[in-house]
Design a protein around this nucleic acid. Sequence first.
RNA 1: GGCCCUAUAGUUCAAUGGAUAGAACGCGGGUUUCCUAAACCUGAAAUCCAGGUUCGAUUCCUGGUGGGGCUACCA
Length: 595
Amino acid sequence: MENLLRKGVREAVRVLYGAELEEGLLQIQKTRKEFAGDLTIVVFPLTRISRKSPELTAMEIGEFLTANIDAVSVYNVIKGFLNVTVSPEEWARRLFQISEVSDYGFTAPGDNPVTIVIEYSSPNTNKPLHLGHIRNNLLGFSLSRICGAAGNRVIRTNIVNDRGIHICKSMVAWKLFGDGATPASTAKKGDHFVGDYYVLFDRKHREQAAALEAAGVKPDEARDTAPLMLAARDMLLKWEAGDEETVQLWHMMNSWVYEGFDVTYKALGVEFDKIYYESDTYKLGKEIVLQALKEGHLVRKDDGSVWIDLTADKLDHKLLLRSDGTAVYMTQDLGTAVIRYNDYHFDRHIYVVGNEQNYHFQVLALALLRMGFKWAGGLHHFSYGMVELPEGKMKSREGMVVDADDLISEMTDTARSMSQELGKLGGYSEDEKENIYRQIGLAALKYFILKVDPKKNMTFNPLESIDFNGNTGPFIQYTYTRIRSVLKKADEAGIHWGHGKQDTLTPNQKEINVIKLLNDFPALVTEAAGELSPALIANYCYDLAREFNQFYHDYTILGEADTDLRDFRLRLSDLTGRVIETGLWLLGIEAPERM
RNA sequence: GGCCCUAUAGUUCAAUGGAUAGAACGCGGGUUUCCUAAACCUGAAAUCCAGGUUCGAUUCCUGGUGGGGCUACCA
């Protein structure tokens, strides 16, 4: 539609003013609601060519367009804006066209698709997932679907930070205070079970440090020399040396954590194609660093530590290997990146990681390039903002966190009580009802998080933030269930709306509003993939649902006596339902049949 | 100190350099013998400050101010 107009205006300029229109000068946008029309041509830039006032230029072009393009029926001019109205009949034809497209909104991958690796989630194995991880997982998972829908080959990956001093703390605490307890013996979820020992370690350690301080030891020294800290260090050394008992304990506790994570991932509905473990990749990282050192890309200090000098890129010196030869965070990320490139030969690699690590990822890409890995130009840090509580930043150690599992079940509880109050699920079994409560609760949570521009920090108020009315996930789901209900009734009445005639139809304004949005969908998916923005999809779904609800409120569908018009409305409803379902799917949100 | 992100109704969020800054929650007023009222209609309510570029700036640039982050031989 827009392309048609684009061509028309170029033609108009050629005929009226005898000039070729540069592409950059032509601005076409959707007409704002408060004005009549569908598409708007901004004529200010064209006055340079016409050498006439904006109003006159607009009128001349408007006359030309209505005379020469069938689909353009009317135009009006306000200030320097030429508002063009596409004829209702054209919109009707448009609906017939796009509703026949299967997989509407998806771009087929083509022969040589762009390969994108997306890393998200990236948990530590010493504590359960919290609200910050939820934002991460939802963004990553949604991005993977959006990029896939736009025709790319997508590999979803995760890196599990499964080694290091933090894991050793949990291990020490369990060994000393655990008394052989297991998640099974305590009926606790594995990740929470292990997380409790991490917290316990921290508490006991603080007590020990305080005792030392009371005896006159300096604070720093007290922290470093408390028996528990020494035990954790010792544990790390043993682990790196491959001590059998330690490695066995490590395996056991990690496996508990993974069982717990799996439950949370499943509850959130996120998945991965390939999971990497830091314990598998850090060694290659060390090799890469040593190799790069040999090739002269890095510098070794007197104490034996290895650094990269990035001052030429306006960054700093960055440590890549400790003086004792052990790996740091950066080391293993270098290794992971190389392994992934060897595995997939990606064109792009998207890291979904919070903005607190902006510096880290700048260094990572530059370091790889410096070492000669040209593909590192395809690395992209998808940097999202922090989730804060009304009291401020979340702090695991002080218990100021919103636990992921708790939050999910609270959402389901709220959905359950609201749904039961409304009482619309008669005829469903308890299991079916529970599944719907879960779908609605999750939709509220996911939509709340995904509708926000990813790079902005967001505040989450446990008591007030999540709504089920208005601009919310459940609102969109509700619109979907209304549509399903109408289509089901049509089906039961034996109405076959798929063959309806189209030529004589003149849709009303509400119908046109919906068709316009439906018509935008494929371009929107492409745009969302280009900008890596699930928020665009979320806001679109909301707009579409709202627009459809207005139509639904003002007009009857099944009660329409003119069967061509009735069938047209069913077609409109059906495509709206399909697009909402697809849009929600791109966000990782399920669409229930009833609610 | 240096670097990065951010600032829009009471609150949570929108707005490729374009028209009268758009929603939701909350607050006020309405709509149900009719396909699901988790809906629809309607009222009040906002661009941090000062310059600059432009026919035109919430948007771009500069300088302030407020908020957040990074600047570890932590991850």
